[in-house]
Design a protein around this nucleic acid. Structure first.
Lengths: 149, 149
DNA sequence: TAAAATTAAATTGTGTACAATCGAATATTA
DNA sequence: TAATATTCGATTGTACACAATTTAATTTTA
């Protein structure tokens, strides 16, 4: 591969990721619209449905987001009645995020979202799963790097 | 896979993409900082280095971005002396984007960016390339869907 | 234990993304 | 060809992302 080929857009894994991620979000949007949530709110809920009552820090570690993104996001979700934000009495630096009844209930309607989205695009589950596992391995390595240095 | 497993964050290909894309951008940032450009400006330049003198529409088709994102982006790049934006006299609806001398020259310094980034993370070229090709296939299918409907 | 260091969340400022709308230019059609 | 439809880029408004800074609370250390 020569110098110019190395800079071709279609040879960039970073661009494939960037484009793919945004297109997938567009694929999900109509189904998330029905639930009245954005994509970022959706992944925050996925994390909370798995483990409720976590600090902003913990949620950020799970989603690779910091308080600069999460604080306004969680305030909107609180205003929408999905979560509550409570200062931890035992350590006032922490804010704990807890699902409300409405936030828990929304999970029922979310079960069908991933299936609908991938069905819409006609992506076979196998292909998607294999891609997912490769990305997970990739992510671990990248994240380790950006954390260490 | 039961219902709850289907909603686990680590089982979502969409989340793996979303997280991976943002972490990759962080990996590139220090090298792009040296060039004085953002990640989105970088991919716009990659496209223009490959094919110069294109309309905003054409550039958007290549990057999966619309004028809502591109117009302010290109104005900043124009202000930075990287491109010029000229109304096409033969069809005044179009705005053609052309690299300036400075924009062309920056390519010289960009050649080493991808290598540095992946070296930094210790990702083997093979693994990256295979991932890239899988993503490209995935992207084609998804994009076709979001366009058709 | 009082001062210094660390931690967590919030805030500030910049830069995308993207849906929806707008206004001008061009193409289509009745 | 005049009216209609389409296309393109710009604009508007909302919602992230994220670096950098700030503020308050807690730990660590001299």
């Amino acid at each position: 591969m020569n110098r110019d080929d190395a800079l071709r857009l279609d040879n960039q894994t970073c661009f494939a990721l960037y484009a793919c991620s945004r297109e997938i979000t567009k694929l999900y949007r109509p189904f998330l619209d029905e639930l009245g949530i954005t994509y970022t709110q959706y992944v925050a809920l996925l994390a909370l449905w798995e483990q409720d009552d976590v600090t902003v820090k913990q949620l950020g570690a799970r989603l690779y987001l910091d308080s600069g993104t999460l604080t306004p996001l969680l305030k909107k979700m609180e205003a929408a009645g999905l979560v509550e934000r409570v200062r931890d009495p035992s350590d006032e630096r922490n804010v704990r995020i807890r699902l409300t009844g409405g936030g828990q209930k929304l999970k029922e309607r979310a079960y069908e979202v991933p299936g609908k989205a991938f069905c819409r695009a006609g992506v076979p589950a196998e292909e998607s799963e294999e891609l997912r596992d490769r990305l997970a391995a990739f992510l671990r390595r990248i994240h380790q790097t950006t954390m260490e240095e």
